[in-house]
Design a protein around this nucleic acid. Structure first.
Lengths: 232, 232
DNA sequence: TACAATACGAGAACAGTGTTCGCAATGCAA
DNA sequence: TTGCATTGCGAACACTGTTCTCGTATTGTA
């Protein structure tokens, strides 16, 4: 099982992962060069094909890794925040932006323009990672809903079966999924505009903008409670 | 002025534009092939360089064209809507999504992952086109504000000088620019998530989601007025 | 009209890319 | 030790963007 061959293979797989990440950070998603990765991993270009299914396979590796790390960062940020809906949404938003700023190439790789010719394998590594990514955000809402921190959700609406994606989540009211997607879209909208340089023309603080969005999300969907600083 | 040479040049320039658009629609932004465009325009690859400054120049052409057409589509949609804030925001959102769906490659080109190695020339074609793109959205808010359709905006806040970008707009309260960016981000967030396939896992209607966002934007920033269907 | 200047288009060439194929060497199990 | 699957490599192929050179065609001018 752990013969010499397996050890070498494992170590080389790691080298390739590392070299690919380095190369991604240097060149961006669409310019990622297989030959350059091979050089970084001290292997011939053709030899790379024993470990990776061409360029698309390498990208799938990086995409899965990106979703996994991004989701983990978000999950940790939410858990470390006070167990209050508003605080958690703000923590989520800030963590979302921070990860995007710290990993711009990987952020662009997983949530930017899809690399054409690449379709994630239905049951493959990517699909699983995408769920690991999305679950902390949905769980935040499911938790808040269970703890009665959310404004009433239309339960009469049909429910959505998520067991296929996340067994422990089970079935969830469709309204909750809508809220989740809308909240995600709002945070994502600000972050991706900034990440791709479309807010560069203004001097306004993007962080302030993002926090305003988070507060707005929390007050829109959360139970009304007095906010100490400002009231409108 | 309009000698034979100028005619040929103008016609070939058009051919190149057309061929580039066709090629973009076929292959996507990062795979756009200069040689393929040359083939489509019945010219040699090297001959293309008499008309276009390499691949980046060709992309700048397409980016400028995309921003221009996108902005125009949005502007027309807003003008054709009833001169009511809510209606106009909904029209904006729907037009935004529709253009993205009808021009997916160009949408990805102008608002997706930036093509690395490409930086828009400061005073060049692109910068101008970006403004043509953004102005209808900002104008929508400036108009609504002037006509007293908006909730009070903090005027004590400093104002932002836009004469550099748009002479007729002049200086605008910073709060208005913030609202504009936040509104844009909310619509953009939904649309780009859908465009890049991240909402494919759900069966919920993205159009419903988007309209809900538009309504929420209008009620957040607009003057309160009774809404016939639902109240919360 | 004749000429020089300019613009133009094409072809060859270069360095780079992803990918495939066959061949030798190596590790492993029988 | 023998047989076999795994591994890595080099060569090759068809591409790519870009540059350079070299005739040709068009233009403005003398």
């Amino acid at each position: 099982m752990t013969g010499r061959r397996d050890q070498l293979r494992a170590s080389l797989e790691q080298s390739i992962r590392d070299a690919a990440l380095v190369e991604l950070r240097r060149s961006g998603p669409s310019e990622l060069s297989l030959r350059e990765v091979a050089r970084g991993a001290n292997i011939s270009p053709s030899g790379l094909y024993r470990y990776v299914e061409g360029r698309d396979g390498l990208l799938e590796l990086l995409i899965a890794d990106g979703f996994r790390r991004f989701g983990q960062a978000i999950g940790e940020a939410i858990e470390q925040a006070e167990p209050v809906f508003l605080d958690r949404v703000i923590a989520l938003a800030i963590a979302y932006r921070q990860w995007a700023k710290e990993n711009p190439e990987q952020f662009a790789l997983i949530l930017g323009t899809p690399v054409v010719g690449f379709r994630p394998t239905p049951g493959g590594v990517t699909s699983k990672a995408v769920l690991q990514f999305g679950m902390p955000m949905l769980a935040l809402l499911v938790d808040a809903y269970a703890n009665d921190h959310l404004a009433p959700v239309d339960e009469a609406d049909n429910t959505i079966d998520l067991t296929e994606f996340s067994p422990e989540m089970g079935t969830v009211p469709a309204g909750l999924v809508d809220i989740s997607m809308r909240s995600w879209a709002r945070i994502h909208g600000v972050v991706i505009l900034e990440a791709f340089g479309h807010l560069a023309w203004t001097q306004r603080s993007v962080e302030d903008l993002l926090i305003a969005e988070a507060v707005s999300i929390a007050t829109s969907f959360g139970k009304q409670r007095p906010v100490p600083s400002k009231r409108r």
